[in-house]
Amino acid sequence: MTVSRRHALKVLGSAAFAAAAAPVMAEARSARPSGPDDLGLLFDTTRCVGCRACVTACREANKKPADVVMIGGAPYDAPLDLNGSTLTVVKAWTAGGRSGYVKAQCMHCADPACASVCMMGALHKGPRGVVQYDVDRCVGCRNCQIACPFNVPKFEWGSNTPQIVKCELCRHRWAEGKGPACAEVCPRGAVVSGSRPQLLAEARRRLAATPDAYQGGIYGATTGGGTACLYLSAVGFGPLGLPGLSDEPVPALVETVQHGIYQGAVIPLVLFGAFAAVTWKNHRSARPGQEDES
């Protein structure tokens, strides 16, 4: 029951937008497409055996410390979820008597909500479609965490100089000719990296080869405006914790509404002029013989 952009237009158009919103002639904001060279991952629940080599490799590649959790009196590197030191995590799902594993990491949306809300563009689309982080432009407002439909950006709560932490597809390793570390070490091809078109082709090939093994198609092909990280599932995507998004990019609604209201800076300027004129007029006429002192 989420609000779609079309719905928003309908509502905006029909509701009387008295003083605040001048007539809304909002143009539906067009979705930003993914590029042919966009780097991504393809995860396949039917292949993952839960070895967590990806998690270990990710820690090493990104120099992130272990997320130490005491379990039964002994310390383990056991992140419950993505967090300030964990860029990828393997979780266990169960659905209808079946169980398996799912890897979580940044989805690298074609049209990311985190980048849309980021005040100074600390999170932004970089080369090869990677949603990347520039700490110099971050003030730590955490709006990205509110906006991300996948709850991906994480904050270093324990630090006094906290940063936002998320997967950047090991872009620091590209210069060495290496791709994402998680895909490099996966012993089962459960997570593979490549350009998005390649991954889509591979996903379709797997779907065509064993159609009975999968349910729900390819998550991310069009979901949420398309993501660079794609999922194949044996049990659909709800049990994996992936939200049921429409094909519309998440930022589309807000940007349609906001730009619809503002029309660039036109509406604020018009409003300012109107306010100033009325105030000036009232101010002058009110000066002599004020009624307010009664």
Binding site: G50, R52, V55, T56, A66, V68, I71, A74, P75, Y76, D77, A78, P79, L80, D81, V89, V90, K91, A92, W93, Y101, V102, P239, L240, G241
Partner: peptide, 17 residues
């Protein structure tokens, strides 16, 4: 433990946090 490793247990998809 200097280099903690993962336990043979996995978090659920929606672990209480």
């Amino acid at each position: 433990i200097d280099k903690p490793t993962a336990p043979m247990a996995y978090p659920g998809v929606n672990p209480p946090q």
